[in-house]
Design a protein around this nucleic acid. Structure first.
Lengths: 130, 130
DNA sequence: ATACGCCTTAGAGTGGACTTTAAGGCAAGT
DNA sequence: ACTTGCCTTAAAGTCCACTCTAAGGCGTAT
């Protein structure tokens, strides 16, 4: 699969995929005889993984450390697992935070529904509802 | 409450709070007789609200539009509710996405636990687990 | 009265993550 | 043979959201 197709499939720009390879956010991609990128299933899997982790808030720095360790073989498994566990915790915290913001926002929207314009000011002043 | 105390209370830098006021991410803060910021409970509520919304991924642009509309009074309630509903949907989408990444990551970590180093390569090659 | 500390602002600077640009290689179509 | 088009890279540019710096006002302590 060429870069154009992969970009479309994973909803990333071609530039982003080239950038991800450059900074080590995915391992080096397989090339064809003229040096063009020719993505294997494994290359695609890495793109998918890195995209997910980036969307979940993992930094380019941590992710590229992980990929680099992966390239260094089995001796790095311990540290790799450590990185994943750190991320797991960070995602969990962010999920909880966002869930509570979501709930509060839903309440706020309900209050908009119920009271409309004339109660707006009181609404904003209610300590537990802002 | 002065800016130093508020910054500490809401875990934001003083610079960030000043910036938030400057770009309209919170309404103008109450001032004392010498022009220093003197935060009322309502000012604090706005800081808390905006901090949550920023953490949940709402852009400075959308949030400042919301605050600006709020300052323009009751006629803007409709548009304001619209903005909040857009954000609610965006947060929901992000929550779902992050939840599935969290689940996948948890599985991956379990697999690290079970198989350790020598199965690492196969693990990474499994299409549904990367 | 002068030094110190806390506050103010405007505006410049920073960091992270892309995104665009410029220059160029290879190859299929006319 | 040459144009068109897809690919390549390095490097410069952009965008967002802060973050820092410089210059200065006011007030209490020495």
């Amino acid at each position: 699969m060429n870069i154009k197709e992969v970009a479309k499939k994973y909803e990333l720009s071609e530039a982003t995929i080239r950038y991800y390879e450059k900074v080590g956010l995915i391992p080096p991609v397989h090339r064809n005889s003229v040096g063009y990128r020719d993505f294997t299933q494994e290359d695609e899997n890495w793109i998918n993984f890195s995209k997910c982790m980036r969307n979940a808030g993992m930094s380019v720095e941590s992710l590229s450390e992980y990929i680099s360790l992966f390239g260094q073989g089995d001796s790095t498994v311990g540290r790799r697992k450590e990185i994943l566990e750190e991320q797991q915790a960070a995602i969990k915290a962010k999920l909880d935070d966002m869930q509570s913001t979501y709930d509060r926002l839903s309440m706020k929207i309900n209050t908009y529904d119920e009271h409309l314009a004339k109660f707006e000011k009181e609404l904003e002043n209610q300590k537990e509802n802002v």
